[in-house]
Protein backbone atom coordinates (compact mmCIF):
# COMPACT_ATOMS: atom_id res chain seq x y z
CA UNK A 1 0.00 0.00 0.00
CA UNK A 2 2.87 2.39 0.55
CA UNK A 3 5.12 1.31 -2.23
CA UNK A 4 4.59 4.31 -4.43
CA UNK A 5 5.17 6.89 -1.77
CA UNK A 6 8.13 5.26 -0.18
CA UNK A 7 9.97 4.61 -3.39
CA UNK A 8 10.54 8.37 -3.54
CA UNK A 9 12.48 8.40 -0.36
CA UNK A 10 14.78 5.75 -1.65
CA UNK A 11 15.95 8.08 -4.36
CA UNK A 12 16.33 10.98 -1.96
CA UNK A 13 19.50 10.84 0.07
CA UNK A 14 18.66 9.56 3.53
CA UNK A 15 21.33 11.70 5.12
CA UNK A 16 19.88 15.13 4.49
CA UNK A 17 22.01 17.43 6.54
CA UNK A 18 19.72 18.75 9.19
CA UNK A 19 21.72 20.97 11.50
CA UNK A 20 23.52 18.96 14.12
CA UNK A 21 24.41 21.11 17.06
CA UNK A 22 27.26 20.28 19.36
CA UNK A 23 25.80 19.17 22.67
CA UNK A 24 25.18 22.08 24.96
CA UNK A 25 25.59 21.42 28.66
CA UNK A 26 22.79 22.86 30.70
CA UNK A 27 23.36 24.76 33.89
CA UNK A 28 22.26 22.82 36.95
CA UNK A 29 21.77 26.04 38.85
CA UNK A 30 19.41 27.49 36.27
CA UNK A 31 17.41 24.31 36.07
CA UNK A 32 16.92 24.15 39.82
CA UNK A 33 15.90 27.79 40.10
CA UNK A 34 13.93 28.23 36.92
CA UNK A 35 10.51 27.43 38.42
CA UNK A 36 11.18 29.85 41.25
CA UNK A 37 12.18 32.54 38.77
CA UNK A 38 8.91 32.05 36.93
CA UNK A 39 6.75 32.40 40.01
CA UNK A 40 8.85 35.15 41.62
CA UNK A 41 7.42 38.25 39.92
CA UNK A 42 3.87 37.39 40.95
CA UNK A 43 4.91 36.57 44.50
CA UNK A 44 6.96 39.74 44.86
CA UNK A 45 4.09 41.81 43.54
CA UNK A 46 1.68 40.23 45.98
CA UNK A 47 4.11 40.58 48.86
CA UNK A 48 4.35 44.24 47.99
CA UNK A 49 0.63 44.63 48.18
CA UNK A 50 0.05 42.42 51.25
CA UNK A 51 3.20 42.14 53.32
CA UNK A 52 4.18 45.78 53.08
CA UNK A 53 0.73 47.04 54.08
CA UNK A 54 0.50 44.39 56.76
CA UNK A 55 3.73 45.51 58.42
CA UNK A 56 2.80 49.14 57.87
CA UNK A 57 -0.54 48.58 59.60
CA UNK A 58 1.09 46.75 62.51
CA UNK A 59 3.57 49.57 63.03
CA UNK A 60 0.95 52.26 62.64
CA UNK A 61 -1.33 50.52 65.11
CA UNK A 62 1.11 51.44 67.90
CA UNK A 63 0.89 55.14 67.12
CA UNK A 64 -1.71 57.82 67.32
CA UNK A 65 -1.82 59.15 63.80
CA UNK A 66 -3.97 62.09 62.85
CA UNK A 67 -2.57 64.46 60.26
CA UNK A 68 0.67 65.48 61.81
CA UNK A 69 3.45 63.43 63.34
CA UNK A 70 3.07 59.87 64.61
CA UNK A 71 2.92 59.72 68.41
CA UNK A 72 3.81 56.36 69.92
CA UNK A 73 1.06 55.12 72.23
CA UNK A 74 2.08 51.51 72.85
CA UNK A 75 -0.85 49.16 73.09
CA UNK A 76 -3.29 51.99 73.74
CA UNK A 77 -5.10 51.54 70.44
CA UNK A 78 -5.70 47.87 71.18
CA UNK A 79 -6.79 48.57 74.72
CA UNK A 80 -9.23 51.14 73.43
CA UNK A 81 -10.51 48.70 70.78
CA UNK A 82 -11.08 46.09 73.44
CA UNK A 83 -13.51 48.42 75.17
CA UNK A 84 -15.03 49.92 72.02
CA UNK A 85 -18.58 48.67 71.71
CA UNK A 86 -18.76 50.05 68.16
CA UNK A 87 -15.88 47.79 67.11
CA UNK A 88 -17.46 44.73 68.71
CA UNK A 89 -20.79 45.77 67.25
CA UNK A 90 -19.23 45.96 63.78
CA UNK A 91 -17.71 42.53 64.21
CA UNK A 92 -21.03 41.14 65.39
CA UNK A 93 -22.98 42.80 62.56
CA UNK A 94 -20.55 41.43 59.98
CA UNK A 95 -20.89 37.92 61.35
CA UNK A 96 -24.64 38.11 61.81
CA UNK A 97 -25.53 39.53 58.41
CA UNK A 98 -22.89 37.38 56.75
CA UNK A 99 -24.20 34.15 58.24
CA UNK A 100 -27.85 34.86 57.48
CA UNK A 101 -27.07 36.03 53.98
CA UNK A 102 -24.78 33.11 53.19
CA UNK A 103 -27.24 30.54 54.51
CA UNK A 104 -30.08 32.04 52.48
CA UNK A 105 -27.96 32.18 49.35
CA UNK A 106 -26.79 28.63 49.72
CA UNK A 107 -30.28 27.19 50.26
CA UNK A 108 -31.78 29.24 47.44
CA UNK A 109 -28.98 28.44 45.02
CA UNK A 110 -29.17 24.72 45.79
CA UNK A 111 -32.93 24.67 45.31
CA UNK A 112 -32.68 26.57 42.04
CA UNK A 113 -29.76 24.53 40.78
CA UNK A 114 -31.43 21.24 41.53
CA UNK A 115 -34.55 22.28 39.64
CA UNK A 116 -32.66 23.82 36.74
CA UNK A 117 -29.71 21.60 35.96
CA UNK A 118 -31.53 19.01 33.86
CA UNK A 119 -33.89 21.50 32.32
CA UNK A 120 -33.60 21.82 28.54
CA UNK A 121 -33.50 25.61 28.94
CA UNK A 122 -30.82 25.65 31.61
CA UNK A 123 -28.65 28.03 29.58
CA UNK A 124 -31.52 30.46 29.39
CA UNK A 125 -32.18 30.33 33.11
CA UNK A 126 -28.51 30.82 33.78
CA UNK A 127 -28.39 33.98 31.68
CA UNK A 128 -31.48 35.43 33.37
CA UNK A 129 -30.23 34.61 36.85
CA UNK A 130 -26.83 36.08 36.06
CA UNK A 131 -28.16 39.57 35.39
CA UNK A 132 -28.01 40.92 38.98
CA UNK A 133 -24.45 39.71 39.45
CA UNK A 134 -23.19 41.71 36.51
CA UNK A 135 -24.32 45.10 37.80
CA UNK A 136 -21.81 47.22 39.63
CA UNK A 137 -22.37 46.87 43.37
CA UNK A 138 -22.84 50.58 43.68
CA UNK A 139 -25.61 50.39 41.08
CA UNK A 140 -27.27 47.53 42.93
CA UNK A 141 -27.05 49.49 46.14
CA UNK A 142 -28.81 52.41 44.48
CA UNK A 143 -31.52 50.17 43.05
CA UNK A 144 -32.38 48.95 46.54
CA UNK A 145 -31.94 52.31 48.20
CA UNK A 146 -34.38 53.82 45.76
CA UNK A 147 -36.82 50.94 45.77
CA UNK A 148 -37.05 50.52 49.53
CA UNK A 149 -36.08 53.85 51.02
CA UNK A 150 -36.32 56.85 48.72
CA UNK A 151 -39.18 55.93 46.39
CA UNK A 152 -40.83 53.45 48.76
CA UNK A 153 -41.96 51.13 45.99
CA UNK A 154 -41.90 48.15 48.31
CA UNK A 155 -44.16 49.82 50.87
CA UNK A 156 -46.46 50.98 48.11
CA UNK A 157 -46.90 47.47 46.74
CA UNK A 158 -47.63 46.10 50.18
CA UNK A 159 -50.19 48.84 50.76
CA UNK A 160 -51.87 48.12 47.44
CA UNK A 161 -52.24 44.49 48.42
CA UNK A 162 -53.63 45.63 51.76
CA UNK A 163 -50.88 43.97 53.75
CA UNK A 164 -49.80 47.06 55.67
CA UNK A 165 -51.51 50.34 56.55
CA UNK A 166 -48.83 52.92 56.01
CA UNK A 167 -45.24 53.33 54.81
CA UNK A 168 -42.76 50.98 56.40
CA UNK A 169 -40.12 52.67 58.51
CA UNK A 170 -37.26 50.52 57.21
CA UNK A 171 -34.62 53.14 57.63
CA UNK A 172 -35.22 53.67 61.33
CA UNK A 173 -35.41 49.99 62.20
CA UNK A 174 -32.18 48.10 62.83
CA UNK A 175 -33.58 44.79 61.64
CA UNK A 176 -35.31 46.49 58.72
CA UNK A 177 -32.00 47.93 57.59
CA UNK A 178 -30.18 44.66 58.13
CA UNK A 179 -32.85 42.80 56.18
CA UNK A 180 -32.48 45.30 53.35
CA UNK A 181 -28.70 44.78 53.17
CA UNK A 182 -29.16 41.02 53.30
CA UNK A 183 -31.79 41.13 50.58
CA UNK A 184 -29.50 43.22 48.38
CA UNK A 185 -26.69 40.73 48.81
CA UNK A 186 -28.93 37.72 48.24
CA UNK A 187 -30.35 39.28 45.09
CA UNK A 188 -26.97 40.06 43.62
CA UNK A 189 -24.92 37.06 44.64
CA UNK A 190 -27.19 33.99 44.73
CA UNK A 191 -26.43 33.49 41.01
CA UNK A 192 -22.75 33.08 41.87
CA UNK A 193 -23.53 29.96 43.87
CA UNK A 194 -26.24 28.90 41.42
CA UNK A 195 -23.81 28.78 38.50
CA UNK A 196 -21.26 26.78 40.43
CA UNK A 197 -23.85 24.33 41.76
CA UNK A 198 -25.42 23.77 38.35
CA UNK A 199 -22.00 23.01 36.90
CA UNK A 200 -21.27 20.60 39.73
CA UNK A 201 -24.62 18.82 39.31
CA UNK A 202 -24.19 18.58 35.55
CA UNK A 203 -20.76 17.13 36.07
CA UNK A 204 -22.01 14.32 38.25
CA UNK A 205 -21.97 10.82 36.89
CA UNK A 206 -25.44 10.05 35.63
CA UNK A 207 -24.93 6.34 36.05
CA UNK A 208 -24.84 6.65 39.81
CA UNK A 209 -28.16 8.45 39.74
CA UNK A 210 -29.65 5.96 37.30
CA UNK A 211 -28.54 3.09 39.47
CA UNK A 212 -30.27 4.76 42.43
CA UNK A 213 -33.43 5.18 40.36
CA UNK A 214 -33.41 1.54 39.41
CA UNK A 215 -33.06 0.77 43.09
CA UNK A 216 -36.30 2.71 43.57
CA UNK A 217 -35.09 5.97 45.10
CA UNK A 218 -37.32 9.04 44.73
CA UNK A 219 -35.84 12.31 43.55
CA UNK A 220 -35.80 13.79 47.04
CA UNK A 221 -33.90 10.79 48.31
CA UNK A 222 -31.48 10.95 45.40
CA UNK A 223 -30.85 14.61 46.17
CA UNK A 224 -30.22 14.09 49.87
CA UNK A 225 -28.34 10.82 49.70
CA UNK A 226 -26.42 11.08 46.45
CA UNK A 227 -26.22 14.49 44.80
CA UNK A 228 -25.68 16.55 47.93
CA UNK A 229 -22.91 14.43 49.48
CA UNK A 230 -21.10 14.31 46.14
CA UNK A 231 -21.29 18.09 45.94
CA UNK A 232 -19.82 18.71 49.37
CA UNK A 233 -16.33 19.77 48.27
CA UNK A 234 -17.80 22.11 45.66
CA UNK A 235 -20.21 23.63 48.15
CA UNK A 236 -17.33 24.14 50.56
CA UNK A 237 -15.22 26.04 48.05
CA UNK A 238 -18.11 28.13 46.82
CA UNK A 239 -19.18 29.07 50.34
CA UNK A 240 -15.64 29.94 51.34
CA UNK A 241 -15.21 32.30 48.41
CA UNK A 242 -18.64 33.84 48.90
CA UNK A 243 -18.26 34.00 52.67
CA UNK A 244 -15.09 36.01 52.37
CA UNK A 245 -16.69 38.45 49.98
CA UNK A 246 -19.66 38.88 52.28
CA UNK A 247 -17.54 39.66 55.31
CA UNK A 248 -15.79 42.38 53.36
CA UNK A 249 -19.12 43.93 52.36
CA UNK A 250 -18.67 47.64 51.97
CA UNK A 251 -20.38 49.30 49.00
CA UNK A 252 -23.92 48.46 50.11
CA UNK A 253 -23.33 49.78 53.60
CA UNK A 254 -21.67 52.89 52.27
CA UNK A 255 -24.51 53.73 49.91
CA UNK A 256 -27.68 52.31 51.45
CA UNK A 257 -27.43 52.65 55.22
CA UNK A 258 -24.14 54.40 56.09
CA UNK A 259 -23.96 51.91 58.93
CA UNK A 260 -27.13 53.17 60.60
CA UNK A 261 -29.41 53.24 62.36
CA UNK A 262 -27.50 53.32 65.63
CA UNK A 263 -24.51 51.54 64.03
CA UNK A 264 -26.82 48.54 63.62
CA UNK A 265 -25.60 47.74 60.10
CA UNK A 266 -21.99 48.86 60.39
CA UNK A 267 -19.66 46.16 59.10
CA UNK A 268 -16.02 45.82 60.06
CA UNK A 269 -14.92 47.21 56.68
CA UNK A 270 -17.12 50.23 57.17
CA UNK A 271 -15.83 50.67 60.71
CA UNK A 272 -12.24 50.81 59.47
CA UNK A 273 -13.19 53.17 56.67
CA UNK A 274 -15.13 55.47 59.01
CA UNK A 275 -12.42 55.54 61.67
CA UNK A 276 -9.65 56.10 59.16
CA UNK A 277 -11.10 58.25 56.46
CA UNK A 278 -13.97 60.07 58.14
CA UNK A 279 -12.40 60.72 61.55
CA UNK A 280 -8.81 60.44 60.25
CA UNK A 281 -7.89 58.31 63.23
CA UNK A 282 -5.43 56.22 61.24
CA UNK A 283 -3.56 54.54 64.08
CA UNK A 284 -6.78 53.33 65.62
CA UNK A 285 -8.13 52.10 62.30
CA UNK A 286 -4.86 50.25 61.69
CA UNK A 287 -5.24 48.45 64.99
CA UNK A 288 -8.67 47.25 63.84
CA UNK A 289 -7.10 46.21 60.52
CA UNK A 290 -4.46 44.17 62.30
CA UNK A 291 -7.10 42.26 64.24
CA UNK A 292 -8.96 41.61 60.99
CA UNK A 293 -5.72 40.47 59.42
CA UNK A 294 -5.08 37.96 62.19
CA UNK A 295 -8.62 36.61 61.85
CA UNK A 296 -8.17 36.36 58.08
CA UNK A 297 -4.93 34.41 58.38
CA UNK A 298 -6.52 31.98 60.81
CA UNK A 299 -9.51 31.44 58.55
CA UNK A 300 -7.30 31.10 55.49
CA UNK A 301 -5.08 28.50 57.11
CA UNK A 302 -7.85 26.47 58.70
CA UNK A 303 -10.83 26.68 56.37
CA UNK A 304 -9.72 27.84 52.96
CA UNK A 305 -6.74 25.54 52.59
CA UNK A 306 -8.83 22.50 53.41
CA UNK A 307 -11.72 23.49 51.19
CA UNK A 308 -9.49 23.98 48.16
CA UNK A 309 -7.48 20.86 48.81
CA UNK A 310 -10.55 18.65 48.95
CA UNK A 311 -12.08 20.24 45.86
CA UNK A 312 -8.95 19.74 43.81
CA UNK A 313 -8.89 16.13 44.93
Amino acid sequence: MHDSSLSDTRSAPATTAVTKTRFRRRSKWLRAWFPYLLVAPAVIYLLGITLYPGIYAIVQSFYAVKFGPWNPVGFNNYVKLWGDYQFWGALWNTLLMGTISLTLQCVLALTLAFHAYRDPWVRGWRIIFLVPMLFMPSAVAFIYKLMFLDARVFSDILIRFGLVDGNLAIQSSIWGSRALLILTDVWQWTPFLFIIFVAALQGQDEEIEEAARLDGATWAKIFWNISLPLMRPVIAVALVIRGIDITTMFANVFIVTKGGPAFGTETISYFIYRTGFKFFNFGYASAASVIMLVLTIIVAQVVVKRAFKSARG
Binding site: Q60, T248, S269, I272, G276, S286, S289, T296
Partner: peptide
Amino acid sequence: STRMMAPAIVAIP
Protein backbone atom coordinates in the same frame (compact mmCIF):
# COMPACT_ATOMS: atom_id res chain seq x y z
CA SER B 1 -4.72 33.52 50.30
CA THR B 2 -4.14 37.08 49.13
CA ARG B 3 -7.61 36.83 47.64
CA MET B 4 -8.93 36.28 51.15
CA MET B 5 -7.62 39.58 52.44
CA ALA B 6 -10.31 42.19 52.99
CA PRO B 7 -9.61 45.40 51.10
CA ALA B 8 -10.31 47.34 54.28
CA ILE B 9 -7.31 45.74 56.00
CA VAL B 10 -4.79 47.05 53.53
CA ALA B 11 -6.71 50.17 52.55
CA ILE B 12 -4.95 52.58 54.89
CA PRO B 13 -1.33 51.55 54.15
